[in-house]
Simulated assay, not measured.
Amino acid sequence: MDYTDILYAEANQVATITINRPKVYNAFRPRTVVELLDAFLKAGWASDIGAIVLTGAGDKAFCTGGDQSDHSGQYGDGSTRGTVGMPVEELHSVIRDVPKPVIAKVRGYAIGGGNVLATICDLTIAGEGAIFGQVGPKMGSVDPGFGTAYLARVVGEKKAREIWYMCRRYSARQAMEMGLVNAVVPDDKLDAEVETWCAELVQRSPTAIAIAKKSFNADSDSIRGIGGLGMQALRLYYATAESQEGVKALNEKRPPRFRDFLK
């Protein structure tokens, strides 16, 4: 597959997948998700790859979720797949399913769907300037699967509800304190730190790691079914005026008036 939205590289038994849309803070459109799926499947089943790194281009953002300015299809011609117009649930599943540890290397913003990706990755390493958080209820959206239920397993029920209900921003240090991040280093040391973790990972037994990952996932895999049901509900929600008010308000640079649509 020819990539336009991501970069793919292999070195030292590590595959690095980079969302390459820095002008929109590495927000993803349908094509981006399809390319990410292809790259993860390529790296995830390559026998000479011991670890996968997911990151974003530039220093402003890891990923900021769905691109609200681009709802074109995966190939730019209107064609797409997925319950909500892009195969995000497939992407979440493939990150969990590939038998390799996936590290989220976070610079800048990990917001919305980007925060969900960082949560789902096996490990998350952040620069000190990284910012984490959710925006769903501010934008007329939500992640009704791994982004909510699995987040609660990572940071606890109370904190997960705070993250989603309040839509606040959290520093890298705060994210590490709540268990969302494994390590925080100065921004200029982030690449070297991730390389160090990867160098250790590729020395481990790949079969043992694959079994361990499957075992970890087995305990929370029921969330996949919950998410599938939730995505069907989300599709219906996106068609409502209440949901559409979020993007409309953003474009008009005003506070959203969601409650006007409860009548």
Results as ranks from 00 to 15, higher is better:
residue 186 P to M: 08
residue 205 S to C: 15
residue 179 G to D: 10
residue 90 E to I: 04
residue 4 T to L: 09
residue 135 V to P: 05
residue 45 W to E: 10
residue 131 I to Y: 00
residue 75 Y to D: 15
residue 252 E to R: 15
residue 230 G to W: 02
residue 175 A to Q: 04
residue 98 V to Q: 09
residue 140 G to T: 07
residue 82 G to W: 06
residue 244 Q to M: 12
residue 229 L to T: 13
residue 132 F to I: 07
residue 65 G to E: 00
residue 257 R to L: 15
residue 188 D to Q: 15
residue 118 A to W: 04
residue 12 N to E: 11
residue 202 V to R: 10
residue 236 L to C: 00
residue 130 A to R: 07
residue 143 D to L: 02
residue 226 I to T: 11
residue 156 G to E: 04
residue 136 G to K: 07
residue 213 K to L: 13
residue 107 R to I: 05
residue 3 Y to F: 14
residue 19 I to N: 01
residue 246 G to R: 06
residue 167 C to F: 02
residue 197 W to P: 05
residue 194 V to S: 01
residue 256 P to N: 02
residue 155 V to H: 01
residue 110 A to V: 04
residue 5 D to W: 04
residue 227 G to R: 05
residue 137 P to Y: 03
residue 187 D to Y: 00
residue 3 Y to N: 06
residue 200 E to Q: 14
residue 65 G to F: 01
residue 74 Q to G: 13
residue 80 T to H: 13
residue 173 R to W: 10
residue 46 A to F: 06
residue 35 E to Y: 05
residue 207 T to L: 14
residue 92 H to T: 10
residue 138 K to G: 06
residue 138 K to D: 15
residue 24 V to T: 10
residue 85 G to K: 08
residue 216 F to P: 06
residue 141 S to Q: 10
residue 175 A to N: 03
residue 42 K to S: 11
residue 151 L to T: 02
residue 211 I to F: 12
residue 63 C to D: 14
residue 17 I to Y: 04
residue 66 G to H: 08
residue 36 L to R: 07
residue 69 S to C: 04
residue 50 G to Q: 07
residue 5 D to I: 02
residue 77 D to A: 10
residue 2 D to V: 11
residue 176 M to S: 04
residue 6 I to C: 05
residue 116 V to F: 00
residue 96 R to K: 15
residue 168 R to N: 14
residue 17 I to F: 00
residue 39 A to E: 06
residue 125 I to L: 12
residue 194 V to E: 08
residue 142 V to G: 07
residue 44 G to I: 08
residue 130 A to K: 05
residue 174 Q to H: 10
residue 131 I to L: 12
residue 245 E to R: 09
residue 6 I to F: 05
residue 42 K to R: 14
residue 92 H to F: 13
residue 47 S to D: 13
residue 190 L to G: 03
residue 18 T to M: 09
residue 111 I to Y: 08
residue 222 S to K: 12
residue 27 A to P: 05
residue 24 V to K: 11
residue 201 L to A: 09
residue 178 M to W: 15
residue 71 H to R: 13
residue 90 E to C: 12
residue 134 Q to P: 01
residue 76 G to C: 06
